[in-house]
Amino acid sequence: MRARIDEIVFDCHDPAPLARFWAGILGGDPVDRGPGWSYVDPPEGIRIAFQRVPEGKTAKNRVHLDLDAGDLVAAADAAVLLGAVRQGGVVADEQGRFQVLLDPEGNEFCFVSPGDGAPAG
């Protein structure tokens, strides 16, 4: 059997504003399917969806998105204007550079910039 990723779903407190934040990061139009479910279909990539859950986020994400937006610093600056929060500074290693940020509900994500042709993962 072989499966295909249909969408990535984030549990959250307030789906509609989170969909708008991520639409600002990834492009696409936010869609509110109901009070407890919103999503965005980025022009490039997989649907990102947000479902309301009663509990809050209490720990670091076990999975996060790595985003290559070209200019890592400019992308992080733009994300902050949309409501993201930086977590530390830009980190550089032999694979490239990355900046960890939190979305408005505290979900971690990274802007990445691969170095010397290395993959961004």
Rank of each mutant, 00 (worst) to 15 (best):
K60C: 03
N61F: 05
R62N: 07
R62D: 13
R62Y: 07
V63W: 15
V63R: 05
V63T: 09
V63H: 04
H64N: 10
H64L: 05
L65P: 04
L65C: 07
L67R: 11
L67M: 08
D68L: 10
D68Y: 13
A69V: 05
A69I: 09
G70H: 03
L72P: 14
V73P: 03
V73N: 12
A74L: 06
A74S: 13
A76T: 15
D77K: 13
D77T: 10
D77C: 05
D77Q: 12
D77N: 14
D77S: 09
A78H: 15
A79L: 11
A79D: 09
A79G: 13
A79C: 11
V80E: 15
L81V: 09
L81H: 15
L81W: 12
L82N: 13
L82P: 15
L82T: 09
L82K: 14
L82G: 09
G83D: 09
G83H: 07
G83Y: 02
A84E: 07
V85Q: 15
V85K: 15
V85R: 11
R86C: 02
Q87G: 00
Q87V: 07
Q87F: 01
G88N: 00
G89S: 05
G89H: 03
V90F: 01
V90S: 04
V90H: 04
V91E: 15
V91P: 10
A92P: 05
A92M: 05
